[in-house]
């Protein structure tokens, strides 16, 4: 028994899926995308890029909703998302 009403269009709302692209060698490892991703689908990788930073990787790629927040907070033009095909 729920105390809230089920929105009538729940079945119709389609959550967008996104695909994140990381331009690893531009990354300086600030971690903003990882910290502030609303679905927490990014994590630091173990790899080093050519500047010696750990770029992010998609730890749970299916969780991306293509909100672009990582893309717009990234100070390095190093990450962006597109709608998943």
């Amino acid at each position: 028994m729920a105390f809230w009403r089920q929105p009538l269009d729940t079945q119709e709302i389609h959550i967008t899926k996104g695909l994140v692209t990381i331009i690893e060698d531009r990354c300086k490892g600030c971690g903003y995308c990882i910290e502030f991703c609303p679905t927490h689908m990014l994590a630091f990788s173990d790899r080093f890029n050519k500047k010696g930073y750990h770029p992010p990787q998609t730890s749970r790629p299916d969780d991306c909703v293509n909100c672009h927040y990582c893309e717009i907070i990234c100070p390095e033009f190093a990450i962006y998302s597109v709608e998943a095909p």
């Binding site: 692209t21 990381i22 331009i23 998609t58 893309e71």
Partner: peptide, 9 residues
């Protein structure tokens, strides 16, 4: 998901 060429919007 890793694009080393880069084509940022």
């Amino acid at each position: 998901g890793i694009d080393h060429q880069g084509a940022h919007p």
